[in-house]
Design a protein around this nucleic acid. Sequence first.
DNA 1: ATGTGTCTAAACCTAAAGGTTTAGATTGAG
DNA 2: CTCAATCTAAACCTTTAGGTTTAGACACAT
Lengths: 235, 235
Amino acid sequence: MRGLDFQRKTKVIVVDDNYDHASGIRELINLENEYEVIANAGNANVAISLIKKYQPDIVLMDMNMPEVDGVSAIMRIMELKLDTKIIVLTAYDDPDLIFRAMKLGAKGYILKTMASHQLIHALDEVVQGKIYLPNVLCSRFFDYFQNFEKNQQNKMEEDENNLLNDLTNREEEVLSLLTQGITYKGVAQKLFISETTVKTHVNNIFQKLQVNDRTQAVLYAINKGFLNKQKMKIA
Amino acid sequence: MRGLDFQRKTKVIVVDDNYDHASGIRELINLENEYEVIANAGNANVAISLIKKYQPDIVLMDMNMPEVDGVSAIMRIMELKLDTKIIVLTAYDDPDLIFRAMKLGAKGYILKTMASHQLIHALDEVVQGKIYLPNVLCSRFFDYFQNFEKNQQNKMEEDENNLLNDLTNREEEVLSLLTQGITYKGVAQKLFISETTVKTHVNNIFQKLQVNDRTQAVLYAINKGFLNKQKMKIA
DNA sequence: ATGTGTCTAAACCTAAAGGTTTAGATTGAG
DNA sequence: CTCAATCTAAACCTTTAGGTTTAGACACAT
């Protein structure tokens, strides 16, 4: 695909607070016929206004900037809802940073330590609409992603402070029905027990969860991932 | 790293309901010195018991199986909490399938249409603890991932059937307090209005949301992303 | 066999929630 | 100006919900 578009060069804006570094990247990119660095920005605010003005095809963004951090900068650029594609360029391979950048919609992620031809390759891939994430960073991302999701599901059981763990089986059943917005009478019918028994269970639940009413109990349950647990039991 | 472990071969279990296909993969893998297919499984249940029994290093899993679907199978294998690594092998490059498999903890994802040496390469990468996701599938994943997160936030406003959109500003405020488990009296104090006024609002909310009590209203609100909306208003 | 935990259930009470109707004040659109 | 929507509020009522105490039946462990 490189060089097929004779109409115009691919417009790139470089965002980096280090002027020397930005200049280096600029020269490197301008060596390529199909790319053109149309502007440099030393901070996020300047970057935003330049992007609004020029609507570049690609923004190469350094992540360790003063004042506004890189993640916020990406967020603000994405909110513009332009066709501009963001490639992150940073010294850090921090999984959390990679995860957040990609989540927000970055199309590529490159380490500064990587060879310069990789930068050009990243540009090539991204202009074609692909994602550019080197294998090393890809693995980092997924380590974080999978553990993140896993933790979301399992943090409940692992949490010593989770009062839901004090509930008996029957109480869990009752709570499960409460989280569906069912009345005492309804719960009694579903569990084939009397309404007063349900009340007893509910009162015990309230004491164990240290709440005062069913709404708070339901909210506590939802926040602690109780619903996920119930779903898993069913499946 | 290949061939450095003289102690034992890497144990692989192949899960595929198509016997011929499973056999083909088995032979292919057994050509490699460092790998050994120790078992085949034609369905998820057999697979689970074989995995429990042999605790293989790698499970190669076909996703289009009858009875139990591949995603559920992955979920059940992950629940065993073994060191077994799952590589998905399927004919489909459906982004949703890729996303769910990776989310659940799959370490690799290969299409059946891909060359056989890629399968071996995937095994090599995964035994080293890396993630194997070919560029095409990686892009598919991120397209889904980035839109997924975006959609989660915006699906509410876009939903024509979302009854929350019928609420007035004041009703939203009241509902917001209900979702914090606050009583009529508490809401009245927070909003500097009388308790009966709160009741009126709440009744209107119930009618608009077509529910009968506060618990159901709170659940409706949570399910439709009301809490996210409130958070966004703050930020 | 004795105690502990769980599930069951009743009686009794108060507080809160929910349903209905009516209505005044304000605002903004036609 | 008038209509509609919204926010406010009261009176009246019924139904749940929640709190407390007591207690029988069963299982399980020491």
